[in-house]
Amino acid sequence: MSIWPIDLPMLAEPGHPRARDCQMAPTRAFMEVIDRATEYVFVMPEYNHGYNAAASKNALDHLFWEWRGEPVILAS
């Protein structure tokens, strides 16, 4: 199942992701898709020996409870 494209805004939610009170439709859609999964595989380009800060960090920072305690594989 593909979730893209979801036009996830750049940290535009007024509240903290921990509260799970998303006001924007793209953030709610992203939360629902991620919440259904039981494990995650991130395939991302390497930039200066790390992940690309803008897109990947934005997606990770938009959610909190959805990522908590779930297995993750990082491939770059």
Score class of each variant (00 low, 15 high):
65 W>V: 04
65 W>L: 02
14 P>I: 14
39 E>W: 00
28 R>F: 01
8 L>S: 06
32 E>C: 06
34 I>L: 08
40 Y>N: 01
12 A>Y: 02
54 A>R: 14
51 Y>R: 11
17 P>T: 03
71 P>S: 07
51 Y>G: 04
18 R>C: 03
29 A>K: 08
4 W>Q: 09
8 L>W: 12
25 A>V: 03
20 R>E: 08
41 V>D: 15
56 S>D: 07
27 T>C: 08
63 L>H: 03
36 R>V: 00
13 E>R: 11
56 S>Q: 06
50 G>F: 09
59 A>C: 08
43 V>R: 12
73 I>K: 14
47 Y>K: 14
27 T>F: 01
4 W>D: 15
50 G>N: 09
51 Y>W: 11
16 H>D: 11
59 A>G: 01
10 M>L: 13
2 S>K: 02
47 Y>F: 14
5 P>M: 08
46 E>D: 05
7 D>G: 00
24 M>C: 01
5 P>L: 04
29 A>C: 00
6 I>R: 15
68 R>Y: 13
7 D>S: 04
19 A>Y: 07
69 G>Q: 03
44 M>P: 01
39 E>G: 09
69 G>M: 08
27 T>Q: 08
52 N>R: 10
7 D>Q: 06
15 G>E: 14
59 A>E: 07
62 H>D: 13
64 F>L: 06
66 E>R: 06
16 H>Q: 04
5 P>F: 13
59 A>N: 07
